[in-house]
């Protein structure tokens, strides 16, 4: 049975014209072993938040979405160029005379990042369901009558995780990262949610896209 997320797709008004898709094929295992040694720390410790434009570009590229699909509040107001510009570290030069970015994340930044990442992941999932042949994330996953993953620890689920890491972070996941996201699938299944499989796909995508590694550089 296909993932029952047709309603989700309907929410994504763009389903009718899916964008072209870049395929990442996991030829090898695609999973790196855990690194158990001590990690040498960065002496500089200098990180910068990506800000509204880069985040939008990054999420769009990672999920093969047109930039305008990534996040729109109430389905129509762009998150990263209109509604949430300042919390994401942007500027408002022409309106408020805010010519330079604050330079630090603010109290509301994490929530806004969550919204943008969730929105992008939901959009991707909707497109994949509409056009499974060209799916970016949803490949080979089998769902039961209760909309749960039949094999939440199987190779298809692992491939989704590997694909997510390669797309969003340009690296293979480590075994603990794969284990954690597979455990997430099991836990969501166990909750008995009505759209458990869909929830997991979107949640796994959300975990990776909104990770600190994804939003700082």
């Amino acid at each position: 049975m296909r993932l029952d997320l047709i309603g989700l797709c309907a929410a994504v008004t763009l389903c009718a014209c899916p964008p072209s898709v870049t395929t990442i094929t996991v030829m090898d295992g695609g999973i790196d072993p855990a690194f158990d040694g001590g990690v040498a720390k960065s002496a500089r410790g200098v990180l910068r938040f990506k800000g509204p434009e880069r985040l939008n570009n990054e999420f769009a590229q990672a999920l093969d979405l047109p930039a305008s699909y990534v996040c729109n509040e109430l389905g129509q107001y762009p998150c990263t160029s209109l509604v949430h510009v300042l919390p994401l570290g942007g500027v408002d030069p022409y309106g408020s005379g805010l010519y330079e970015a604050a330079g630090a994340t603010s109290v509301t930044t994490p929530m806004v990042v969550d919204r943008v990442a969730l929105s992008a992941c939901t959009a991707r999932a909707g497109l994949d369901l509409t056009d499974p042949a060209n799916a970016v994330l949803l490949k080979g996953l089998v769902v039961d009558a209760q909309s749960k993953l039949v094999d939440p620890q199987g190779p298809a689920a692992k491939q989704v995780i590997v694909s997510l890491y390669r797309r969003a972070l340009q690296r293979n996941p480590t075994q603990p990262e794969v284990d954690a996201l597979l455990k997430l699938a099991v836990d969501i299944n166990a909750k008995g949610e009505p759209r458990a499989a869909g929830d997991w796909i979107i949640s796994a995508c959300f975990v990776v896209l909104s990770s600190a590694e994804s939003v700082f550089y």
Partner: peptide, 18 residues
């Protein structure tokens, strides 16, 4: 609209999943 990480996003996972 930015004061919640998921409310108001259609088809977002349930709060328990999130």
């Amino acid at each position: 609209l930015g004061l919640d990480g998921s409310r108001g996003l259609k088809y977002a996972p349930t709060n328990a999943s999130l």
